[in-house]
Design a protein around this nucleic acid. Structure first.
Lengths: 131, 131
DNA sequence: TCTTGACTTAAAGTATACTTGAGGATTTAT
DNA sequence: ATAAATCCTCAAGTATACTTTAAGTCAAGA
């Protein structure tokens, strides 16, 4: 089990120290050891948890849901159904997000084509395209 | 050019009235006419703009960037390069989001499989799978 | 040893995007 | 005619997720 300073963790995840303080304060990061002088000592469990936090955050999960996940995970046997449900729901959410993004990307790309048409028309002093 | 009450618009876009008030207050919706008694009268330009606002919001664009887009659009000729740049940048952003979501979806699906394995192990009183 | 950089706490502040509440006016349906 | 629905303004409040500030302690290199 390796040890890490707050700087090492902050650098690894490109997070400011304050965010790590904050995550600890709200209970998202737990059991952070301290050196004799009171400095935080992180370990591989925190690495593990931060990997999950980053993944969940990247996919738009709220901090309160992320916390719920870890709470369930701490007593996995009695919450296995909730955990599976949470993960399956989140999988669906991601799927919906991807679908929406793909659809909206079409709109944006259409706008790009439209505005490029306008640019050409401006440059050549010809008629503007219709949208 | 059709006219719409705030209720019609709110229903169409499934937004509370307050959000439409807010969008007007911050200048995202402009030139909203009023009836004699002071009630808002929206028209097809607002429909058009709201379609774009919803699209931009769905793809994670900030309100300040959405405002910037409409500001540029109001004097398209002198801002055509900025508009194209904004849209192309946004297209890239969406592309990145999709990539990230697809990658993270793998992680979530792996978790689902893992926890389902655990559920089975609990039910059959057998050994837990490794992650 | 001294200075610089890393770290601490606790409270207050910030950014974004709305939402709610109070109090009143108007419109529509019965 | 009256009740219910819809709308108005403006200020204050809320939720989420941090960030900043202040004032100080600790550790490591020159």
């Amino acid at each position: 089990m390796n040890n890490y300073s707050i700087k090492e963790i902050a650098d690894k995840y490109k997070l400011p120290h304050s965010t790590l303080h904050y995550y600890e304060e709200i209970g998202l990061l737990e059991n952070v050891d301290r050196s004799e002088s009171g400095r935080r000592i992180y370990n591989d469990c925190h690495i593990c948890r931060l990997d999950a936090i980053i993944c969940f955050k990247n996919t738009g999960m709220s901090i309160s849901d992320i916390k719920k996940f870890f709470t369930y995970e701490q007593d996995l046997e009695s919450h296995i159904d909730e955990i599976i449900h949470l993960m399956e729901k989140h999988d669906e959410t991601i799927q919906k997000q991807i679908k929406l993004l793909l659809a909206e990307q079409e709109h944006i790309q259409r706008k790009v084509r439209y505005y490029k048409g306008i640019k050409k028309a401006i440059e050549n002093n010809t008629q503007w395209p219709s949208y």
